[in-house]
Design a binder for these strands. Structure first.
Lengths: 287, 287
DNA sequence: CCCCGGGCTTCCACCCGGGGGAAGAGCCGT
DNA sequence: ACGGCTCTTCCCCCGGGTGGAAGCCCGGGG
């Protein structure tokens, strides 16, 4: 409604160059930037912290947080700090490759957990990361790096190596271009070596990762297949290195993965297909 | 392309008329309306379905869905349908009363599950609903109504009755004002009766719900306490009615709840407090 | 005491990004 | 071929969002 506007501000004027983190030029992006301020390292934040981490003005943050809170996406602790609300948990549970998959797989994972007494993971791929859709921790050996919803680069975990090995070529190339982050002295950061490992995983159908993400850890993982025999997830166990031979874990792991794959409708895991492959021990049938 | 259509569709036609569902006057609200279009009954939606369910224009929906997808909050299946993405699972896992609590409680729940072979639930209160933070399903008796992230009115579940019984007065009053939804012929819908039940739950520390949410189901639940002995969650098991005496489940349930409470730092669950358990504690386990 | 520096909340005028109409591209079944 | 459906793109106008500023409440310190 303002009369004539002579000149739009020229580009020479530089904006304060906000948003180092959020990159939220759009309104929807600002909402997401608020949510993205939260993470495993920052599960609860004050208003100003959200503002700083999201790169938004305090005012804007205040309003957005208010709306999110009213909606149930955020909740406010008595001390005034904000945290993720149950509404988002509820939403997240609807992820088809997430908790829906988990729902189906849990009984199998439970059996595997009971049988091996190891940390059990079910992971799916999201971009260049693996996300834990379920993580059953061993009672004694606490390994804090395995949380449901946890996210790690594919090259640094057993399940991730499986997911990467069976991913599309594009996905692999993209990940192999960027530098591979190192977590331990033994983390594979050499592209050529990683390619070799992936080929081996494809050949054997098993990934064996030692000390990749955490020292003194041994991870063994196998693929889980879906309706079209595509790899939809990876099943893995992690134990303290030296306590178990990696080979000893493979049969139970393979059997469990097969059970889940069958439940998912994978052709290669159908009962009649079991003859073609070598006799594999079936998981404990329902009793 | 018939030029311009001079007449807009007449209002007499039954037009969905901007669903109040979303109630999105604000930009942030529109983003949330898109997310809210998803639910247990609608885990995957087409673009137009999202548009209709959220009450947003197709154009707006299109853009918002695009942004959400780019961010990772939504993902698109090969058939073009949209579903919740892993980013939201990741976020939801950060809910302090949600999966953080779950993380700590899972080993205990697992033991209880193994011991009782029943459906095991850990629930927290969100408004007038209980939300399942964990749900371990019994192998045989599939009870589909217990999913992680599931949300049910407090009056209709065992865990809900516990949460309601120990909730603030305001919360109780608010819930007791609205009509109580009926799920089965036995669901408590009478306010006076519910009050009586709640008083009993407070007295005994145990809720016993029969056929409240699903027919032929028996649910037994007890409170889980936090740092200041406040009730932070409810632990419950559900079995087929007639298979087990409700009393038989109480000891294991109470022991498990105590373990979780202790892990949470509840004073009343500290080792030295074990002798001085307060008043009536439902000691009778023999029947 | 007042001042100060945090965090949080509210208010308001400007203005830029978002909204949605409309048109077009696919893609069915008929 | 048609009509009906969904999805995608384009673009102008306007209304809601943005952020500056001021007010509020705390706790600490001079």
């Amino acid at each position: 409604m303002g009369a004539t506007r002579p000149l739009p501000a020229t580009a020479t004027e530089s904006r304060p160059a906000r948003l180092p983190t959020g990159g939220a030029a759009t309104a929807a992006g600002r909402v997401l930037a608020v949510l993205a301020a939260f993470g495993p390292a920052h599960p609860s934040l004050t208003l100003s912290e959200i503002s700083r981490r999201s790169g938004l003005t305090l005012t804007t943050t205040h309003r957005l947080v208010g709306e999110l809170r009213q909606w149930g996406g955020l909740e406010r602790a008595p001390d005034g700090r904000y945290a993720i609300g149950l509404r988002l948990l509820e939403l997240g549970a609807l992820a088809p490759h997430g908790l829906q998959l988990r729902e189906l797989a849990l009984p199998y994972l439970d059996d595997l957990h009971q049988a091996t007494r190891a940390n059990v993971h079910l992971a799916v791929r999201d971009g260049s990361d693996g996300v834990y859709v379920e993580a059953l921790r061993a009672r004694g050996a606490v390994q804090v790096l395995s949380r449901l919803g946890g996210r790690w680069p594919l090259h640094a975990t057993g399940t991730g190596q499986v997911l990467l090995a069976f991913a599309d070529r594009e996905v692999q190339d993209e990940l192999l271009q960027a530098p591979l982050k190192r977590f331990t002295p033994d983390t594979i950061t050499n592209v050529a070596e990683l390619r070799r490992v992936l080929a081996e995983v494809r050949r054997t159908g098993v990934a064996i990762a030692e000390n990749q993400l955490t020292p003194d850890a041994l991870a063994v993982a196998v693929p889980v297949r879906g309706e079209r025999d595509e790899v939809v997830a990876a099943l893995g166990v992690t134990v303290q290195r030296g306590t178990v031979q990696s080979h000893a874990l493979v049969p139970a792991l393979a059997a469990t993965a097969r059970g889940i794959s069958r439940a998912l409708g994978a052709p290669s895991a159908k009962p009649e297909a079991s003859n073609a492959i070598r006799a594999s021990r079936t998981p404990r049938s329902s009793g």
